[in-house]
């Protein structure tokens, strides 16, 4: 009598059990999530996968483009002529400003030279096309193609014809990721155009209006005010239109006013965007004298560097 074999024959071997696999891959996923949140060490992995996915993503644009082309071929000539006329009007209206701009820029440079202020050396811009957007209902991000004059830079500001759209947050070989100003983790330093009050505009996520947080109830802000970039962050050049205040709630019982603003740019509509060049690096923040810090925190012993 032969013995029953202690192990099943080799063709029944199917590797580790599903539970063991789940435990393994689950732990790897959690480790990836943790590493991706805390450290930016996985960018090479992400970049490799992005390159592999790129042909598929390009192919996924084809149906939309074909539909767009069909719709365009059905667009009536009169509608196109109307649009053309409107664009001409717009161009004429802006021409006056544009012509005045050259002389004003010259005058500004002269005045700056007189005052000894470092001038802002003009900002370069690259036109890019939005490839795809908004598949994830949680995050407000866009993917744009490579610019006509080489790749876009990390951290560059992105605008459209009406205002600021967002900022380049990741650069892949063929495309770049733009985080919109409506994203929950995005903040833009702004200034109220009318009164000059400085603040920061925080995105609030999908379907919600960005807000000016930490503004005192008596701050000089009114409904209808335009917010422009203040330029003090060194990312957004100063003076770009960002949003218009649409709701304002001053409650004496609250520490801060609730101020909501609607983005002026077609954050979720524009097809073509302008990527500005990254401004020159700001000088480093001056070191605070150690004794001043010690004086401010008596009893804390040694001053601790943050």
């Amino acid at each position: 009598m032969g013995h029953l074999p202690a192990e099943p024959p080799p063709f029944f071997h199917r590797g580790p059990s599903p539970l063991a696999r789940l435990a393994f891959f689950g732990l790897v996923s959690l480790a990836l999530l943790f590493a991706d949140t805390r450290y930016r060490t996985l960018e090479t992995l992400r970049e490799g996968a992005a390159i592999a996915l790129f042909p598929l993503q390009q192919a996924a644009r084809v149906p939309g483009m074909v539909l767009g082309r069909i719709a365009a071929s059905f667009a009536s000539v009169s509608a196109l002529a109307e649009e053309n006329a409107k664009l001409r009007q717009q161009l004429a209206a802006q021409a006056a400003n544009a012509q005045g701009l050259a002389s004003e820029r010259l005058e500004n440079a002269r005045l700056r030279a007189l005052l000894g202020i470092q001038g802002d050396d003009g900002v370069d811009a690259t036109v890019v096309e939005v490839l795809f957007a908004g598949r994830d209902p949680f995050s407000q991000k866009l993917f744009v193609g490579r610019g006509s004059e080489g790749p876009v830079q990390l951290g560059a500001a992105v605008i459209d014809a009406d205002g600021v759209v967002g900022q380049v947050t990741r650069v892949h070989p063929h495309l770049a990721e733009v985080t919109l100003i409506t994203d929950k983790d995005h903040a833009v330093p702004v200034q109220v155009e009318r009164s000059g009050v400085r603040s920061v505009l925080f995105g609030a996520g999908t379907g919600r209006l960005p807000q000016l947080r930490f503004m005192a109830p008596n701050a000089d802000v009114e409904v209808g005010d335009t917010l422009v970039t203040s330029g003090i962050d060194g990312t957004y050049p100063p003076g770009l239109a960002v949003a218009r205040v649409v709701a304002l709630e001053r409650d004496a019982g609250q520490v801060f006013a609730r101020i909501s603003a609607r983005p002026l740019a077609g954050v979720d509509r524009s097809r073509h965007l302008l990527v500005l060049s990254v401004p020159v690096a700001l000088p480093p923040r001056p070191e605070e004298p150690a004794d001043a810090e010690a004086a401010r925190k008596p009893g804390s012993g040694k001053a601790r560097r943050p």
């Binding site: 891959f25 999530l33 992995l45 992400r46 995050s139």
Partner: peptide, 16 residues
């Protein structure tokens, strides 16, 4: 990667 979300969230969900 395609969704530009945190690496691992769809991976975890699909594994489960």
């Amino acid at each position: 990667v395609g969704d530009a979300t945190l690496l691992g969230q769809h991976a975890l969900a699909y594994a489960v």
